[in-house]
């Protein structure tokens, strides 16, 4: 059974979903701030910082994917669905690429002796990236859904595209905050 919905309903609901998820990540970052501010040194003695190469590459890839994701909306507004599909495919590929890089990142951390149970620094890094990864899975599924419905006759296609896009940008913003807090400083 399919149900008709208006643009206002889709927009409102997708914004509430993003607010809910933002509260989840805000709580995690609040925890980070408390651990970080109460630690005498950071990272704690005996803990090595993670190399910036893979996180930087991941940031770049996610940033590019957001650019292409935005192009999907621009193309859809111009009713150029062929180009929109092309840009959407690139967005999905970059999203999957980001996820593969995360696998390499965890493997590198393990290789450097930074295990999940190695203390609060490792706990934060692993847990935050895992939780973000789980949301990335949802994001990629949303992109695949968009790929399925991205055609002119789909009802409210522009609203659906912008809602999926907003979620994708949200994931990027969360990653950027994680990149700065967990890896850079």
């Amino acid at each position: 059974m399919t149900f008709k919905r208006s643009e206002a309903q889709i927009n409102l609901a997708s914004n509430i979903v993003i607010i809910s998820m933002a509260m989840l990540f805000a709580t995690l970052f609040m925890g980070y701030a408390i651990y970080r501010s109460s630690a005498p040194v950071w990272p704690p003695y005996g803990t090595q910082k993670v190399s910036l190469l893979l996180p930087s590459l991941s940031t770049l890839i996610l940033f590019m994917s957001s650019f292409f994701c935005h192009q999907v909306l621009v193309n859809s507004r111009k009713a150029d669905f062929k180009k929109a599909h092309f840009n959407l495919n690139i967005t999905i590929a970059l999203g999957l690429g980001f996820m593969i890089l995360q696998g390499f990142l965890w493997s590198q951390m393990k290789g450097a002796g930074l295990y999940v149970s190695s203390g609060i620094f490792a706990s934060l890094t692993y847990a935050f990236t895992w939780i973000h990864f789980a949301h990335m899975v949802l994001g990629v599924l949303a992109l695949f859904y968009l790929k399925k419905v991205l055609k002119p006759q789909t009802q409210n296609i522009l609203t659906k595209t912008s809602s999926v896009g907003n979620f994708w940008y949200f994931l990027e913003i969360v990653w950027i905050i994680m990149f700065i807090t967990l890896f850079v400083f």
Binding site: Y35, A39, P44, G119, I120, S123
Partner: peptide, 26 residues
């Protein structure tokens, strides 16, 4: 989620310990 990770994956978010060395949980 953090409590589940502490219980299953071995993270240390809520385990108290020596904060200067391993970095303790709270």
């Amino acid at each position: 989620i953090l409590l589940i990770l502490d219980r299953i994956m071995g993270t240390t978010f809520f385990l108290a310990g020596a904060s200067a060395t391993s970095g303790s949980g709270d």
